[in-house]
Nucleic acid binder design. Sequence first.
DNA 1: CGGCGTTTTGAGAGAGCTCAACATCGGTGG
DNA 2: CCACCGATGTTGAGCTCTCTCAAAACGCCG
Lengths: 198, 198
Amino acid sequence: MADWLTPTVKAAGIERALKAGQVLFRTSHRTAGFYEVMTGIVRLLRVDQAGREVVLHVATGGETLAEASLFAPTYHCDAIATTDAVVRLYPKAIVLAEFERNSKAAQAFMAMLARQVMHLRTRLEQRNIHSARDRVLHYLTLNAGEDTRTVMVPGTLKDLAAELGLTHEALYRTLADLATAGEIERFKSKIRLAKLRV
Amino acid sequence: MADWLTPTVKAAGIERALKAGQVLFRTSHRTAGFYEVMTGIVRLLRVDQAGREVVLHVATGGETLAEASLFAPTYHCDAIATTDAVVRLYPKAIVLAEFERNSKAAQAFMAMLARQVMHLRTRLEQRNIHSARDRVLHYLTLNAGEDTRTVMVPGTLKDLAAELGLTHEALYRTLADLATAGEIERFKSKIRLAKLRV
DNA sequence: CGGCGTTTTGAGAGAGCTCAACATCGGTGG
DNA sequence: CCACCGATGTTGAGCTCTCTCAAAACGCCG
């Protein structure tokens, strides 16, 4: 997953603990580099003229943050810890120098970004599906494993509901309906799509 | 916008016209490179066990397609023209060689991908907002220009509705409501947010 | 002038959201 | 070992909001 993280870069990572509400960086601050969220939740936002927060993104464990800051002199939004959190800073100069020297690392980084773009587009497409039923089916179909039928559910169903953009109630109901309709089978942390009806 | 497109790469671009319904590439085909959609609409999709299309993305003019294919031996989805379309192929070998030789170009490409990631995350965040009113306001606030109040509307309001994930009726109504509430002013192809009320 | 697409407004229905109650499970501490 | 507690999982009922279907006004271009 993080094969762009060469030993050099990894060694340069600087961990930092944040209290809930603490500011990681603000708009127009000079960019230090980009971050990886290790634990907790960090949100990216802008503040509009009326002082309201306009949220750009909510990052949780494992996600990277502000990749674009590698190529910009200043940050373009604020980053604030929503919960207590631990982040790791990858200093811009070191990362860029590594990419210059090591084109394999650069390629791996590009590949990671390209995969993210792909994945995000897919999730966006998913949100165009209005029916909860179809949205869940879309997700299951796309995330079915080797046998093209079994999906491992990562984390709780509540988390899944959030990823799908549904309330957890709606997800529970939809799964229950699909199960009684015989379209899926449910297991502890797996869901299996019914055999295709031809 | 396309500053990663060095003359070398640009010269290597191969245009190709597609009829509606024509296949550009299929899953497991060997990757030739990635594409830019010049005109028309191309959709990326997978086919599930029951033979149904599962759409991953719908690309239109100016968008790039299958960036991740640069780093993979085979395509992981099908690409089919929805309308008559013209695409431009940037051959993998040439692009990668250029990135190896020209680290500025590589950096520009990374920067482009990073910006895309940022933008897609923002759009995804936007879709988490359920109320049409708040979603429109979120969009307007984030896209306000220099003066932080005026938004140029690209294309028709119908297009905007699609980008926002609303029906055009819902958007028209919401804009009308916001206008009568005095929260926005509407012009030919501009919308201005009302002054902040403190 | 006659079409075609966008913009606008109306009315109705359905689907998911909200609020609420309860079950279940895992962990914690007495 | 059991009682307690919090978070997840589940089901119910009502409501709101957007979608859908419909129709008409408007603007643009041939």
